[in-house]
Design a protein around this nucleic acid. Structure first.
Lengths: 243, 243
DNA sequence: CGGCTGCTTGATCAAGTTCAACTTTTGTGG
DNA sequence: CCACAAAAGTTGAACTTGATCAAGCAGCCG
């Protein structure tokens, strides 16, 4: 079922069988795309929205010099540009970080959902509210935390979000981000990310090999990064964290 | 009409007469509140949402030490906690900055709107998408701009948003924020805000008396703060900016 | 193989914080 | 309305964080 990870990561209301079927039948196409490719460019007009099925994707705003600030990091189960359904165009770019698999939903089908499927609509709205909640956490992180805290905070976020969609095994997960990527996310330079990562690694908070990370001390990272998963409103069945 | 500023600031779709009447009749109460008072505390469960009619309000996340990071600044016409309708509880606090006047909407009435008034629902959803868009601009500002740029950027934001709801006259507007307030918004200390403000003032970008600001060089501030009002998706009738 | 990108490390520099002191303004109670 | 306390505004000096500049090394892709 294509919507499975969406329901794991973003679903909070119970959906009926017919509602799930409606989601599945709303999909207009599924495609794969290589790493480091643009999915949406800011300002272009949109007539469909994309659900990420596999891989990692990031949204970016560019500064005057072309340097990028990431504004959201996406894991499987996330809609990538559902905001585009309401706004019709985006104020930022969307690009893959790893190779990815994506399902698309035409906006005219989403319009039918908003008109005839109130419970599903609410679920879509809810998903965009979660995006906003994640945005607020990033504002907090960038405004109040020092480099070490920001990085610890982001590691906690991705760990918890990947765990929600079943992509963490024994505290470890696939993590193909480069140090410059982390810099674009945390508002630091790649050089400084390098120094902080090493310090965190040497303190035993996590271990990393080429393309994956294992979290060794989630509690410690959460303390450093002042991280609390409540902002994700985790499904009530498991209000606990830190598996 | 109580929803007038909402329509000026957040309305993008044409609403019918009956839809406007529905909004007006959905209001359950209107109240006034003093400056520096809490409106919503994080985590508390919500059964109504508030529309700001007059005054300034801010949303905050607190760090470990109790220091606050503002995550959104609200002007008249903004819903303050519409996100609470979907999320049922907030991850942050909402507090008045000035004295304020607020209209409340019970969630059961909003539920009726989502079930029976698709066009109105979309308008409410759109308003929360604009909040997310503003959040993203703050992430960019905090992640990529230096102190001077961040402050210039915020001054542009508030100037444009207040202008949209008709609260700017000859480039001037009521502005009761203290320098520590600006620090909580921009992620800087009050001391540094002081130095930067003075530098901007002495360069002729704006003038300030006790409780108001007059923007003298919007273009210059926008350049400094890398500000572009597109992210607010201004009503198409006036895609122009910088009155 | 060659070149690009990322990773690593050191040295220097600049931005912004912290601490401290003092002045001005604002709000409150008598 | 005045006195006083609390908060905001201002300024300087020392200090810290992270950026910038620079250089060498290691993977990876074509």
């Amino acid at each position: 079922m294509i919507s499975r990870k969406f329901l794991m990561g973003r679903g909070r209301e119970q959906l009926s069988i017919s509602e799930r079927k409606m989601i599945e039948s709303s999909i207009s196409s599924v495609f794969e795309i290589a790493a480091r490719k643009p999915l949406v460019r800011h300002g272009e007009s949109l007539d469909k929205s994309m659900l990420l099925l596999e891989g990692f994707v990031c949204r970016y705003k560019k500064d005057m010099t072309g340097a990028r600030q990431a504004v959201e990091f996406h894991v499987p189960g996330d809609f990538l540009d559902l905001h585009g359904f309401g706004l019709k165009r985006l104020d930022h770019d969307i690009e893959t970080i790893s190779e990815a698999k994506v399902a698309t939903f035409n906006h005219d089908v989403l319009t039918i959902i908003t008109e005839q499927w109130p419970n599903l609509s609410k679920s879509l709205w809810f998903s965009t509210l979660l995006d906003a909640s994640m945005h607020r956490k990033w504002i907090f992180s960038h405004g109040r935390l020092r480099a070490e805290g920001r990085i610890a905070n982001f590691l906690c976020e991705i760990y918890v979000r990947l765990d929600m969609v079943g992509l963490v095994t024994d505290g470890a997960f696939h993590f193909p981000l480069t140090q410059p990527d982390l810099g674009e996310i945390t508002g630091l330079t790649g050089v400084h990310v390098n120094r902080v990562l090493r310090s965190l690694r040497s303190q035993g908070f996590f271990a990393a090999d080429r393309r994956s990370i294992q979290i060794l001390d989630y509690e410690g990272l959460a303390r450093l990064g002042e991280f609390n998963a409540d902002y994700l409103l985790p499904p009530s069945t498991s209000a606990k964290r830190a598996p």
